[in-house]
């Protein structure tokens, strides 16, 4: 028995148990997402993947696909809602793209382009957040963390290390490192960890490398993320 849903009018086959996001990814249709990465359990926290089902918005990454389901994704109303959410992510941190090594291949930035964000719209919170450069190979700039918890999941579920966790609550929620000093350099983190590769933003960056790819040749310089796909979809990842 084949099961199919309709995504913006296109029939998409799926296997029972898949989410709307799984089905769309498998069919090569892009639904914007930040906290989702098919290698890890769905999380549902960024809310960028909202799609319309039965007159309500649901997160595609956590909602089971159902036979005969009608899903709306690429409508102006939904894009505008997603844009507001992405704008919220921009104003809650400090994103100075011109000064960020990840710019041009940053998933957050690429999603922002995809949803048509020209400005962050809301007032900036300008939070005071640290940069942790204690590790010999990697640095963390917490100004750019969007709390997607992909590093948390990768470290816990793949690296079996629990290097990262989220602490605090509300707008004061923040990523923390599991080490006695709270510094990355004192943790079990290693450059070969999967957690080093999963960050969709410029928060976790390798050291000793700077702006290697010239402007114009970076991942998202020439074509949108809906065409190029995620960082992880690239050969060899980062």
């Amino acid at each position: 028995m084949s099961t199919t849903l309709s995504l913006d009018g296109r029939p998409i086959p799926f296997t029972p148990g898949q989410t709307i996001m799984d089905a769309a990814l498998a069919a090569g249709i892009y639904i914007p997402h930040l906290c989702h990465n098919p290698d890890y359990a769905p999380h549902g926290s960024c809310r960028v993947c909202m799609v319309g089902v039965g007159g309500r918005l649901v997160s595609a990454c956590t909602t089971a696909a159902l036979d005969g389901m009608t899903v709306e994704s690429n409508t102006e109303t939904i894009q505008s809602t997603r844009r507001s959410i992405v704008q919220m992510l921009f104003v809650e941190g400090n994103h100075v793209c011109p000064a960020c090594e990840r710019s041009g291949s940053c998933q957050l930035q690429a999603v922002a382009y995809y949803v048509g964000m020209l400005s962050p719209h809301f007032p900036q919170f300008f939070p005071q957040r640290p940069v942790d450069a204690s590790h010999p190979d990697f640095m963390i700039d917490f100004n750019r963390c969007i709390l997607c918890e992909l590093c948390v999941r990768a470290s816990r579920d793949h690296d079996h290390k629990r290097v990262f966790a989220v602490s605090g609550r509300g707008l004061a929620s923040h990523l923390v490192i599991d080490s006695p000093s709270g510094l990355l350099g004192d943790s079990h983190f290693a450059a070969s960890d999967r957690a080093a590769q999963v960050c969709p933003t410029g928060a976790i960056l390798p050291k000793h490398r700077g702006y290697e790819q010239p402007i114009g040749q970076r991942l998202y310089d020439q074509a949108p993320i809906s065409v190029v796909g995620d960082l992880r979809a690239q050969p060899g990842g980062e």
């Binding site: 400090n94 100075v96 011109p98 000064a99 400005s119 962050p120 900036q124 300008f126 005071q128 957040r129």
Partner: peptide, 18 residues
């Protein structure tokens, strides 16, 4: 019209806000 990163979100000069 806001032209450029600094007009749009403060840009590099806003790094002093830390």
């Amino acid at each position: 019209v806001a032209v450029g990163a600094c007009a749009v979100n403060g840009g590099v000069p806003a790094m002093r806000n830390a």
